[in-house]
Amino acid sequence: MNFNFDTHVHSTFSVDAKDNLEDIVSSAIAKGLKHICFTEHIDHNPKDYGYQFYDFEKYSNEIERLKDKFSSEIQILKGIEFSEPHLYKSEFEKELNRDYDMIMASLHWLGDNFYGEKELLSKYSPEKILEKYFKDLTVIAELGNFDVLAHFDFPRRYYGQVSVDNHLIEDILKFLVRNNIVLEINTSGLRKGYNFTLPNFDIIDMYLNLGGKNVTLGSDAHSREEIGADFGKINQFQHFDKLEFGIFKDRQFQKLYL
């Protein structure tokens, strides 16, 4: 099955991205996409090199310009990826009052260390790192007020398929299902050389078994080349037909009939 949407994309309005909004939109159209949601990083950790980089006004103005220019070719949606909302609650509240189509929550830091830093391995085993990650992710899930939980098992992008107590994972998924927060299937793990998505297929199975079904699909692209990367591999998921893929418009989930 061909997917004609990507709901996790970064432009140069994120500090770590390569291409500007218009170049990414043009590439998405060339690849046959009909929907694209930009999810620019908002980072409030002073140690993050994206700290205070985000500019809502400039981002919004460019989104509106491109909507006018490409309205007949692609639906352009405005989102954000807000890191550690449980630690920056007042800043998160500010974003909740803005006119986004989709708000993603994510977790990138363990204390003073980014999850990909090798220094973490001098402090903890990979198993302990993942355990701490999921405990913090539980707090984020409990906080709620966002639409999508990004790259569910993010540290596995750096440490591989590390095992963890499934009860931790199930507790988070229960919060998502109970509060109508949607799970993202993020293909960046495949692009990083692993043979799994984030979350992996076992976690997606758990989500289905707990009553979840709505999902978004994102490449986590930071360049135009990465848009829609490895989406075809999602078809390998055994229970693919039970998932409801969709996008968010005005913070409402809209199923896409593929």
Score class of each variant (00 low, 15 high):
residue 171 D to M: 08
residue 180 N to W: 13
residue 173 L to S: 00
residue 187 T to W: 12
residue 159 Y to L: 14
residue 197 T to F: 09
residue 119 E to L: 12
residue 190 L to H: 10
residue 172 I to S: 02
residue 145 N to H: 14
residue 84 E to S: 06
residue 154 F to S: 10
residue 162 V to F: 07
residue 88 Y to I: 10
residue 74 I to D: 01
residue 199 P to R: 13
residue 88 Y to F: 14
residue 87 L to D: 07
residue 104 M to R: 08
residue 122 S to G: 15
residue 147 D to T: 12
residue 119 E to I: 14
residue 80 I to F: 01
residue 105 A to W: 03
residue 116 G to Q: 08
residue 158 Y to A: 10
residue 74 I to R: 00
residue 87 L to A: 08
residue 148 V to R: 06
residue 167 H to L: 14
residue 101 D to N: 02
residue 97 N to I: 00
residue 78 K to E: 09
residue 203 I to K: 03
residue 135 K to M: 12
residue 134 F to H: 08
residue 155 P to N: 04
residue 141 A to Y: 07
residue 77 L to C: 04
residue 194 Y to A: 10
residue 179 N to D: 15
residue 97 N to Y: 05
residue 204 I to T: 10
residue 160 G to E: 08
residue 95 E to D: 00
residue 204 I to Q: 04
residue 183 L to A: 09
residue 174 K to Q: 08
residue 178 R to N: 14
residue 123 K to W: 15
residue 164 V to R: 09
residue 123 K to C: 15
residue 94 K to E: 11
residue 106 S to M: 05
residue 151 H to L: 12
residue 197 T to W: 00
residue 86 H to Y: 03
residue 104 M to F: 13
residue 98 R to Q: 11
residue 127 E to M: 06
residue 140 I to T: 07
residue 135 K to S: 11
residue 117 E to M: 13
residue 191 R to I: 12
residue 128 K to I: 12
residue 189 G to P: 09
residue 173 L to F: 02
residue 95 E to K: 00
residue 180 N to T: 08
residue 75 Q to H: 12
residue 134 F to E: 02
residue 76 I to F: 05
residue 124 Y to W: 13
residue 157 R to S: 07
residue 200 N to S: 14
residue 173 L to I: 12
residue 144 G to L: 05
residue 158 Y to C: 12
residue 113 N to F: 15
residue 107 L to V: 04
residue 199 P to A: 09
residue 144 G to M: 07
residue 105 A to N: 05
residue 122 S to K: 15
residue 164 V to M: 05
residue 138 T to F: 13
residue 94 K to Y: 11
residue 81 E to K: 00
residue 82 F to H: 02
residue 199 P to E: 12
